[in-house]
Write a protein that binds this DNA or RNA. Sequence first.
DNA 1: ATTATTGATGTAATCGATTACATACCTTTT
DNA 2: AAAAGGTATGTAATCGATTACATCAATAAT
Lengths: 342, 342
Amino acid sequence: MAKNVRIRDVAKAAGVSTATVSRALSNPELLTESTRETVFSAIHATGYRVNKAARNLRTRQAGAVLVLVPNLGNPFFSKILAGVSEWFDDHGYSVLIADTKHHATAGKLPVDYFLDAQVDGMICLDGTLSAEDLKQFEANGVADQIVFACEWVHDSNLPSVRSDNLQGARLAVRHLYELGHRKIAHVTGPQDNVLTHVRRQGMLEERARLDLPVRDDWIIRGDFSLESGRAAAERIVEMEDRPSAVFCASDQVAFGLISTLTARGLRVPEDISVVGFDDIELSEFYVPALTTIRQDRHGLGANAASLLMECLEAGPGAGNEKAPVLVDVELVVRQSSAAPRR
Amino acid sequence: MAKNVRIRDVAKAAGVSTATVSRALSNPELLTESTRETVFSAIHATGYRVNKAARNLRTRQAGAVLVLVPNLGNPFFSKILAGVSEWFDDHGYSVLIADTKHHATAGKLPVDYFLDAQVDGMICLDGTLSAEDLKQFEANGVADQIVFACEWVHDSNLPSVRSDNLQGARLAVRHLYELGHRKIAHVTGPQDNVLTHVRRQGMLEERARLDLPVRDDWIIRGDFSLESGRAAAERIVEMEDRPSAVFCASDQVAFGLISTLTARGLRVPEDISVVGFDDIELSEFYVPALTTIRQDRHGLGANAASLLMECLEAGPGAGNEKAPVLVDVELVVRQSSAAPRR
DNA sequence: ATTATTGATGTAATCGATTACATACCTTTT
DNA sequence: AAAAGGTATGTAATCGATTACATCAATAAT
């Protein structure tokens, strides 16, 4: 039962030319109702499926997009992928994935992923690309077929879809403020990361706006990881002037933080309140359930997909001046934040 | 800077025929050292990249595989994907993804995913396919290009890679037994699932072997979800003859369970011990850190990829009699299990 | 010296779908 | 009735790489 049905076979079965079969699939309105039906029943009868390699060769398109993920093993990306995949499934594109992390050593440039995959466009979830990487995109004429999602490259004007991180950080701080907290600390993400920068900025802005006390050692460097949350907790435990609340740049940081704080005898939220950022699956079920800023990851993915498709169909230069799409975030209040002990 | 370099252009630049250029890339040993060098420098100079559509058309291959995921949004699959992706990146295949969940309604059959994607092979992470689905694979001659990973279809002899679930369940029960527990409950996965079946079986076997007390209501139906863990907790809280330990079919179930047990005033592990299955990222940092059975998800993915590649390169019929590949699991003891209160 | 053998490279058919252009037929217009 | 226009369909060139087969040169065998 091998699959060797070619368009020619369908044409023969339907008693028409290959052109007619092709049109039946791509421009059915060009055909008479009766031929169209004949052709479709022949297609059905033969079990014909267009050979994409042939079509792609002829049309010089790929009907596929690539999602470049900095670390596929990170479960954070799964919902974004789901959003991307859903959109493109519905719109007839195939979705390829590639993990940049693994090949960091192999000297494969981001642009190589794009060119090697031979896709029409790319969604990049990695905001750590260098200016040089972007130059390469330009140089190879693919810059117009790239959309950043979730992260983005500082100072680049490539189109991107992102959460409203600034607003998220503000919401977190304001929430803690409204609970009565004044001494608020922040565990940041990794140094070179745009998200780190914006969330920290939002946090600092809101802290200033609310006229809260400032201490340099309340801004603790982390890297989004559980481990860095643990490290931050160790620091906090030993502070003589301890904050009463901590806003973490990610939920994972918050988990590490809470875990270690608890192990060190500080209770959350009784002794110290914690707010995260992301709202990953388990945040709701953590003990204590985590108060956090929800990112609509599925929405980020779907929006990025839709934006990329727009760019692709609009042709070159389309994405050039597109403003970043901001996706709303939402404060989700749970058990890890409460009024401070007095 | 458009990319329009064809093999002909390279040939011209190198002063050879297209055949020679093609050979330089696919069978370099056929060429003289000097021509090979000339060709490669021409390739480099022109920035040539083979057009995969053309190659695929000619060779009737795709150089790509599809990973069929039952629910891409489920972070559990991310590490498996990472393993698959890493392997295929290293071996020159592209990796496509598709989410069956979303299209359950659209009447798209599993075999359609395969055929529409026009790939060389497929890794299926969904064990809930019907006998009819498998028939379709056979009928379309693609059964030999499919490998199941993690889950598999009961009674099918398609090649698969899976964790040693039976052993995992035994380890979990034995661990609890050795801590002193006798009254051990189990929250299962969803009814129709092969993993549910095997893990339950392993649990029951070990319970019988150790001659532990049996109560029907200690086997609680769940579905791998956090929510079902919560529901199970409610049931357990209200039992008059309460188990002192619970083995959960997934970590998520364990989280839901612990979360609700705690909310209902039962402490883990002081009042009740809990063991999970999977060892997802957060298990280590949950409060209390979760004792669980670790699945090597990255390894599952990589093994599945490698097995699929074997099948593809060995040609038709290769996977036919391959025994399931069992990947070792490991008991990871953390804070959620302890000796029972006396 | 002639033939056989091996090795390196070139020639050209081929994979299957798309689509510009050509053709044939049918209306409508004058 | 002839011309013009429109509509439906067919013909065949084309996309770019691979590879069977042909060719040619160089070496080995007789």
